[in-house]
Design a protein around this nucleic acid. Structure first.
Length: 287
DNA sequence: AATGCGTTCAACCGCGCTCAA
DNA sequence: GTTGAGCGCGGTTGAACGCAT
């Protein structure tokens, strides 16, 4: 059965948007908000299909977009995220405020891809071209308490504290994949995440030592409450007077995963964690 | 000035997913 | 359980631009 077209093509404009069309779209969304893209063009007096309006708004007209060149930090961040997420541009964009998936995708294809190729790195696998390949073990299991699940069954793990609560069995290669998946709470991401190894990303410590104390739920709730409390303490006190054991551990994990541009660290000496990292960590908590 | 070629990026296309009927 | 509308995503296209010849 064929799919019906999203709009009456013969009555819609295509190609570049005019200034007037942009104004109409912006004014309409300012008044009525986003959504109902199918009915929006007619309501806004635009001879465009809904998808085209949505794309124009999301990729170009949204007021919170950051225009201009990507910074070196953004570029590094994209490379790191791509090594974990693969071509999941929308997921990568979600972690880069002010950037769109389309923008990142274009930047990847026009700049980063070429840069990696010139360094002798395969942009898809993030491995040197002459390195030996390892393939992930599709039967890798994740244990939650006394339950065991396949990777692809694992779909609802809270993001913030999951790294503390999961016991992973499988080969080293998949450990990192699992940790990423856990941080991003969707089975789909798990399936698409790239395989990492210490030889590929020496700055990323794959020995996550993630283990379960009691049941996953109990640990998660406990840690969530603890972090909530600590976050409040952090906001109440000037930095430096307060150091949280659970937060330092979590920040350390961020470090070890390479999300903070950090070097390998030792949790026992996390007194040395810098202020910016800690602030970033607390602000990232959605408690 | 004219032409060709490579690059960039806005926009389009088709597919998959979700959800309500 | 089936169907179809609506939406979002990733891949692709093509117009516009810059540079070299």
């Amino acid at each position: 059965m064929g799919r019906s077209p999203c709009c009456e093509k013969e009555h819609t404009n295509k190609g570049a948007w005019t200034k007037e069309e942009d104004e109409r779209l912006v004014n309409y969304i300012k008044q009525h908000g986003e959504g109902c893209w199918r009915s929006l063009p007619k309501a806004a007096g635009l001879l465009r299909c809904g998808k085209s309006c949505r794309l124009r708004w999301i990729n170009y007209l949204r007021p919170d977009l950051k225009r201009g060149n990507f910074t070196t930090e953004e570029e590094e961040f994209i490379i790191n995220l791509h090594s974990l997420l693969g071509n999941k541009w929308s997921l990568i964009a979600a972690r880069l405020p002010g950037r769109t998936d389309n923008e990142i995708k274009n930047y990847w294809n026009t700049h980063i891809k070429r840069k990696l190729l010139s360094r002798g790195i395969d942009p898809q696998t993030h491995r040197p071209f002459n390195s030996t390949k390892k393939t992930p073990n599709s039967n890798t299991k994740i244990s939650i308490g006394n339950q065991e699940k396949n990777l692809n069954q694992f779909s609802e793990i809270p993001q913030t504290f999951s790294l503390h609560s999961i016991n992973v069995s499988g080969d080293n290669l998949m450990k990192n994949s699992v940790s990423f998946k856990v941080r991003n709470d969707s089975a789909e991401e798990s399936n698409s995440s790239s395989v990492l190894s210490e030889e590929l990303h020496p700055q990323i410590n794959l020995e996550l030592s993630i283990s379960l104390q009691k049941s996953f739920e109990q640990s998660a709730i406990k840690l969530n409450d603890q972090l909530k409390q600590e976050k409040q303490q952090f906001e109440d006190q000037p930095f430096g007077t307060f150091m949280s054991p659970s937060a330092t551990q979590a920040a350390c994990l961020c470090y070890k995963l390479g999300f903070q541009n950090g070097n390998s660290c030792n949790c026992k000496s996390m007194k040395n964690v810098n202020t910016d990292d800690m602030q970033r960590y607390y602000r990232s908590l959605s408690l």
